[in-house]
Every structure is written in C-alpha cells, then in structure tokens.
Design a binder for these strands. Sequence first.
DNA 1: AATGAATGAGCCTTCATTCAT
DNA 2: TATGAATGAAGGCTCATTCAT
Lengths: 197, 197, 197, 197
Amino acid sequence: MSEKADNKRQLIIDKATEVFAQAGYRDVTMKDIVAACEISRGGLYLYYNSTEELFLDVIKARDEEEEEKNNNIIERLRVAGSAELLLWFLKEQKKEILKRKNSLSIAEYEYAFYCRENLHNSTSKQRFETETQVLEKILVRGNENGEFICDNPQAMATNMMYCIEGMKINARTMGISEAKVDKELVFLMRQFMEVEE
Amino acid sequence: MSEKADNKRQLIIDKATEVFAQAGYRDVTMKDIVAACEISRGGLYLYYNSTEELFLDVIKARDEEEEEKNNNIIERLRVAGSAELLLWFLKEQKKEILKRKNSLSIAEYEYAFYCRENLHNSTSKQRFETETQVLEKILVRGNENGEFICDNPQAMATNMMYCIEGMKINARTMGISEAKVDKELVFLMRQFMEVEE
Amino acid sequence: MSEKADNKRQLIIDKATEVFAQAGYRDVTMKDIVAACEISRGGLYLYYNSTEELFLDVIKARDEEEEEKNNNIIERLRVAGSAELLLWFLKEQKKEILKRKNSLSIAEYEYAFYCRENLHNSTSKQRFETETQVLEKILVRGNENGEFICDNPQAMATNMMYCIEGMKINARTMGISEAKVDKELVFLMRQFMEVEE
Amino acid sequence: MSEKADNKRQLIIDKATEVFAQAGYRDVTMKDIVAACEISRGGLYLYYNSTEELFLDVIKARDEEEEEKNNNIIERLRVAGSAELLLWFLKEQKKEILKRKNSLSIAEYEYAFYCRENLHNSTSKQRFETETQVLEKILVRGNENGEFICDNPQAMATNMMYCIEGMKINARTMGISEAKVDKELVFLMRQFMEVEE
DNA sequence: AATGAATGAGCCTTCATTCAT
DNA sequence: TATGAATGAAGGCTCATTCAT
C-alpha cells in the first residue's frame, strides 16, 4: 500500500532531519540513519539509495514548511503593522542564527561545498531569495504606511539578508554572542526606522 | 638537521595549501597530500600525524601572510587617503568573495563545521576580527580627515564585515554575480561617503 | 485450486525461460524473475523456493519439448530419406550453435559449473545422449538403405556430437563464424557420404 | 622495491590460480583470495582491484607456460617421430579433459560467459588456435614422413580439436569416463593412421 | 493465495595509520 | 630520516529469504 510506504518515508525523513541537524552532512552515514530510524540497512535502501538522496528530500520537506511560513507572513502584511512583522521576522532570523544545534544549516552548507561544482543544484538559493523578497515586501509596506523611511527597499532587504547570512555563518564557524546579534539588528533597523535601545 | 627539516616542512605546507584550496578540507586524504608533495606516505607522517594537524599549519602560514598585509594597510593609513585605502580594502574583499577556486575559505568553513564542538579552536575568528579592526581604523581616519561621515565606525565596520562574510558564503553555496557584489559594496559605502555610480 | 496454480506455474516457467536464456544462470536474481513475471516477491516463493528449483523446472519443460521433437524425427525415419533427415538434424544443430542469445545453453553450462560437485544431477546428460542416439539411428538407417557408408554408426554419432558440442561451447566462449561451422559439418558428413561443396 | 612487489604479485597469482582452479570464476571473492594468500584485504587491493583483474593475470601466466610447452613440441618435431608426438599431445589433452579439479578450464568458461558481450577479449581463443596449429604441424610432418595419411591436415586438426573441446566441456557438465575418451581418441586417430586397440 | 516491506548476512572498497627495512 | 607495503576498521551496497497483512 502506498500510504504505508509514505508513512515510512515520512518517518525516515523526520529521523534523518534530526540526524543531519545534529551531525551535519559529511559525517552522516547510512548506518547512522539506520540506527536513528530503527530499521535495517536493507530497509533504508528500499527508500533511499544514498545519504545524498535522503538529504535532498529532507531539505525539500524543510523548504515546504518554510514556504508556508513565508506565505503566512505575507498574508499577515494586510492586517498587521510592518514594524511588528519586521520584528517578528528578525526574531526568527535571530533564533536561526543562534540555534547552533538542531539546525540543518550546517548540513546545508556542507552539502553545498560537497557539490561545489554544481551550484545550480543549490538547495539554499531559493530559500535565500524567498526570504529576501519577504523582507522587501515588509519594507515596501512599511514605506507605504509611513512606518519606515527607506529609499531603496530592495537594496536594503538584500543588504540585511547578507548581514544575517554573515552572522549565521560566523555563529557556526567562530561563534557569536546574542548581544552582538542584537546590536547588529538594531544597527540595521536604525537605517530606516526609529529604534529605542 | 633542523634547517633541512624546516625546508621540507615548508614544502609540505606549500603543496598542501594548493590541495586544500582546490579540494576543501573534507575530501582531502593523506594520499592526496602525499601525491602533491611527491613524498612517501611514511615520510609525511614524520612531520604531520593527520590532515588536521597539517591543515592547522597551512592556516597558520596563511594568517601570517595576512597579518603582514594588514600591517601594511595600517602603515599606509598615515600617508594615503582613507577613501583610497577603503577602495583597495574592498577590492581585496571582492576578489576573495568571487575567487571560488584556489581559495582556502571553503576548506576553512569545512574545518570549522568538522570541529563544531570546539569553536574555541576557530581558525577564522582572529582573521575576522583583525579585518574588522583594520576597516574600523580606516573609517575612523576617514572621519578625522573629513573624507567620511560615520557616526559609529565600529558598528559600521562590523556591519560591513558581516555583509562581506554573507556574500562570501553565498558565493560558495549558491553563487553570486560580480554585479551583485558591486551593487552591495556601493550600498555599503553610500552610508558614509559619496559614491558615483 | 490446482488448475489455476498450474497456469501460474506455467506462466512463471515461460517468463523465467526468457530470463535465463537472455542472462544465463549466475546473473539471474529472484528480483529479475519477479520483474519478468509481474508477480510479487512472496508470490514467487509460493511456487519456487530458489532460482535453482525454478531453473530445473525450466530445463525440464525444455527437455519435454525436445523429446517430442526427437520422437518426431524417429517417426519420420520410417518414411523420409536418411540424408534428408541428417541434413535437417545438422541444420538444427547449426542453428543452436550459432544462436548465442536467447538460448538456454549458457545458463545450462553455468548451472552445471555451479553444481560441479554433483554432476549426477546433470540436466545436460540426458539431452546429449538422446541426441546421440537419434543421430545414430539416422546413420544406421542410412547404412541400411545405402545412402551412407559407415562402419561404426555409434562411434560416428558420438564423434559428431562431440564436435558439435565443441563448436557450441567455442561459439559461446570465443566466437565462431558460420563458415567454420559449415566447413566442419561438411567434413563430418564426408566421412560417410558424398557431399557436394 | 619493485622486485619485492613482483615476488608478492607472483605469490598472489600462484595462490589465486589454486583458488580459481578449485572454485571456478563466479564463486571466487576477494575474501577467498585474501584467505588463500594470507594477506590483508587492503593488501590485496594494492595489487589487484578486482577478481577479474587478478583472473586475467592468472590466465596470462598460465598462457605463458602453455606457450613454452607448445614451442617445445614444435622443437621436438625435428627429431622425434610424428606418431610419438601425436600420442604425447593427445595424452596431454586427455589429462586435461579428465582433470576436473585443479583445472582453470571451468573458471575460464565461466569468465567467458560472464563477459559474453565482449568475446573479443576472449582469453580462450588464442589458446585454442595455437593448439590447433600445433596439431596441424604434427599432422603435416606425419604426412611428409609417411607416418600418417591425411588429405587435409588443417581440417583434420580443427575437427580433432572440436572433438576434444566437446569432451572437455562434457566432462565438466555431465561427466565422461576415461574409457569413452580413449575410444574417441582412437576413433580420431584411425582416420589417418593405423591404431592397435 | 498473494503482497511487498523488512531483514541481515556478506561482499566490495577506501583510507588512516603502522612498521620493517 | 625516508620509504611504501601492509593492516584492518568502517562504510557502501545487494540479495535471498521471511513475515505480517
């Protein structure tokens, strides 16, 4: 029955997500997945023939969740204040920046390096661009209703996303304190709105 | 003989640098190093007991070069214009952002992920902070001599470095066009100086 | 229901025959059989517990067909000319020699090697001896009606069959041209009859 | 040192020859070879990357021995009687036919089937043709010195070799008694010389 | 009867590391 | 010092066979 197989597949994706979030991409072996899923070696191969195949499905599942989240934000733009939404957006980003364990980001970076000859397959690009657009929409809306003053929302959004990406990678390669993240986010916001310390 | 050993060690570092720059950290095996150095398997082990040990020396050598470069910039601050130096600094960063092959950066990221439990060993932190300080000095000097108008040079420098770091990692995980880098750098500079398109 | 089961069994044998004829014995897995029969893995096991068991049934079915064929020849000996029948017999052998694909012979050889400790199970022996006897009968009859001149039909038949067997195996291990087969068959026939080139 | 490596390689070939002679081609795993050579798994891979590679070297070594043997026969043709040499040749063939264990022939057949798409790589062809030529030379010489009476030595040699090949394969797939081999060899010889029972 | 998911034994291959020379 | 053959642990993968449904 296909439904049963789908359930199993979902179980594998869930468990594998934990494994990848905890151990990154390069260190994960089929054995690790098998142990996490409590299935047999051969059983796993019924669904996925390599960690790569499985990882891509893990990312796909994560992206689908993210998409929904982003759609929700845009939806809320109609009724909620831009500043409020911006704060929420940045709080989410901050969480992701500081969440060093249990995040797929390291695995994603590692996978990208692993495939560095084929960046067109990038699993990250879509996500980055979507988030940039969401942020831009918030800025545009804020401009319209006078909450923000921002000449070039697109450039501003891009700039902010690069900063955030920079903090994210730094958090994972050299560590970053929560205070520094806060300071930087305030710096960014001050460019187009008033922020009280 | 110590001198001879040092020469050998230097040769290994040089060849290994090429290997790591080309292949990253995770994919490099002792075999690759041995092949590049035209040395015997056992011979390499006389100097380094693992790729990790060797990689740390590679990074150390790279950092020493970088330090000299940075000292030069600070030296030149006394006589050269700040804008001129800033442009030179950013040009160097741009080069590094776009240089996807033959850069140790991917190896460094991969190594950081590999050691993610021990970020205090971070090979990257020192470099990031030093560069931030150099940039800050340039901004301070530019403020003093009226070339720039920048309230908070430290925050500005930090912000710029995060952006640059963000572009660097994006270049390696999803690709980035030269045009986008230029646009972003101009955006950054406009915050404290006049830039003609 | 027994009839239904027999039909299924026959279907499996037919499909498996194609698989073995195409791929030999050693390379065939249960998966291949299952795929060819469009049956479930477990379903196949209801009928056959191993490829070996199935293969033996395939051979049995093939042998039953062959037996009928041979009986037909002997039947025709009463009315047809010996030379004519001999030519037909050799033509069949030639076809088999040259038919490299879609012949069970490779599978049969492989199976024999696989069971080389138990040659008493030989699937091939019966077939070889029966064909030898058929050939001998043709020669005897030809002697009787003056078409052939052959001192020792039994030895002659055996000799011819060894030759044919030699060509068959050579065709499969090193290749043989049709011309060579023809030449050899003519050589054999000349020992007891007149053959025009 | 290359000499040492050559010795090792020779050791591996010797041991592997025994393994292939005993177990054929298809059943032999790297593990078997490793066990026979009393070396480590990784150690074997230093010399051979697959059973196939190793097998081809085993056959090559065997062929070199055979070539020497054949050259010796041709050498002896100048001084020895043809009948004597023929008897020796056939005795050797008889030995090979009956030697079911410790012969590479089954492995060779199995390998040929395994590579049945690429018969041009055949390891057997050269051997078969060389032996046919040797036999032909014996027949020609026997004709010249009046020991044999044989119209077409080439066709006769080919015919004999097919018979021998047929007996060889039959010996391995269905068994053959020594008496039958003797009877057949006598049958063959009677076609061009007098043979006492 | 029939299904096909699940199991686990077993083979293949690579690589860091050791060690006799 | 320097060599490179040798080791064996570890991961990848396949397949005959079983079993709950």
